[in-house]
Amino acid sequence: MAMSLFGKKPSDKGPATTTRPGKSRERSETTTSLDLTQLGDGRALAAAAGKILVSEGSLEEHAAVEEAAILYANSNNDGARSVLEAAIDGTASKHSSHELWAMLFDLYRITGQRAAFDARSEIFSQTFEVSPPRWDESAPPPPAAPARPNAPAVNLSGNLSGNARTQFEQLVRIGQKMGKLRIDLSRLRGIDDAGCLLLNDTLAALRRARVEVFLVNARHALSLVEPKLKIGEKQSQAAWLLALALIQQSADAEHFDAVALDYAITFEESPPAYEAPPAAPEVVELPPVAAVSDQPERFAMNGDVTGNQPEVLRQLAVYASQRSRVEIDASGLKRIEFVSAGALFNQLAQLQNQGKLSLIYRPNALVAALMRVMGIDQVATIERQP
């Protein structure tokens, strides 16, 4: 039996009494939050039931879309398939929506049911007199979700200069929250004097906050800085100090002492003292932080997203903090659990309230349906797969 979250269709005597998160009959300028973190599956469904907008069209189809999306989100693939197939067959196919078909075809693809896919493709083609979707043999399986890290990792790329200060202030905040930070320097192409000063200030702020910092590929960054070091010429002092910090990260005490002596001769002051670097922490990569970036990369959501506070949402928060336009690539997102979708709604609603535009690209039909059920389409623009 299909279980509808829409409730009964409103009569002509009055307005609908149910609303969707972030949307009402008279469109509201504010958004609301779904706190599903303390609810079990059944209670979460009940909580969501009062937040769904009654829309026009077939209530039976809406109910099937909702139920299939929620069953799939909760890993009940067989139940979702039964609901979708029954809905399509029960409407004599010709009158069923393309959304039901798209969800069923995506479910067949995800679960590897090629025979069922081909059989339904023939029916689809005969019914609608258009070409059916294709089975993508080349599509690789979505990558597994990363393990929870001991320390967040951030990549610096491009030409490091003083105009990246806002991004580096964010790095300090991340480090303060996590207690550890891993910064990969391998993608840097250049560092000017202002960039040297900025990185020095950032490392000093992290040190004051007692954050353990590990610089990856410090030797590469050192090769970009060394040409600025001219013994006896009192210029580019920030580059000298950064060079000493990078050498220290390489645990090369002998090299450090040599450069420290040259520093003392050049600037007639004592150099920083050598301290052994910390051991490298276990990490998981966060989205790259570009030192200079005109076209920010999209944030990728991949595999299965589960739990009330999935790690990927923390990474999304870091990504979004640096941008006014938040672009999410969901083409590799296989499944998002019901409660996780509620947490994603909350996060995107906060971004909307901050004046940020969120866009979600190419989720599969099952994920897209759940996002509509949860009201995520009211706080972000969703661009479906063709």
Rank of each mutant, 00 (worst) to 15 (best):
P272Y: 09
R27M: 12
A119Q: 10
A260N: 09
L185S: 09
L36K: 06
T91V: 02
R219T: 12
A63R: 12
L229Q: 08
N76M: 10
V259K: 04
Q237E: 12
L104G: 07
A164E: 06
G14V: 01
V65E: 05
R362D: 04
R325S: 09
A86H: 06
N76I: 04
N150F: 11
S125K: 15
V379Y: 09
A209S: 11
L53V: 08
S4E: 05
Q352S: 11
A63V: 03
G232N: 05
H62V: 02
L313F: 15
P227G: 06
A16Y: 00
R298L: 03
E268I: 06
L34C: 08
L45A: 10
V305M: 02
A260Y: 14
M301D: 01
A164F: 03
V367E: 08
A205D: 14
N308F: 14
E282D: 12
V339N: 03
S138W: 06
L241Q: 12
M3V: 15
S131T: 14
T18N: 15
L313G: 05
Y319A: 08
G112E: 02
S96V: 12
P386I: 04
P21M: 11
L203S: 02
N150M: 12
A260L: 09
A69R: 07
E226Y: 12
K51H: 15
A49G: 12
V213E: 07
K180P: 00
L244S: 04
R210A: 13
L53A: 15
P296G: 04
R207I: 03
L45C: 14
S55C: 09
R298P: 13
Q378H: 14
Q385N: 10
A164M: 01
K228G: 09
K234H: 06
D192E: 07
R325N: 07
Q385G: 01
Q113N: 11
A349P: 01
L229M: 04
Y319N: 11
L104S: 08
T31Q: 08
Q248S: 11
D106E: 10
T166G: 14
G79S: 01
L370P: 00
I328K: 10
F345R: 15
S28L: 12
S97M: 01
A144Y: 00
A151E: 06
A343G: 09
E137C: 00
H62N: 13
R20P: 01
D193E: 15
A330R: 08
E285N: 05
A317V: 06
G57R: 13
E122R: 13
P281T: 10
A264K: 10
T17C: 08
P287G: 02
A204C: 01
A264I: 02
E26M: 14
Q309F: 11
S236W: 07
A69M: 03
A102G: 00
K51I: 07
W101T: 03
S75L: 08
A276V: 04
I191H: 13
E285V: 05
D377Q: 01
E233D: 10
P140D: 06
I123Y: 04
L206D: 05
I123M: 07
E61S: 12
L229F: 10
F338I: 00
G57T: 13
G50P: 00
G307I: 04
A16K: 09
L222F: 15
W135Y: 06
V130D: 10
A209K: 02
A73E: 01
G232M: 02
E268R: 12
P272T: 07
K23V: 03
R148A: 14
E66S: 15
L59M: 14
D89R: 15
T19S: 15
P133Q: 08
S28M: 10
I382L: 07
S11A: 07
A349R: 02
P363A: 07
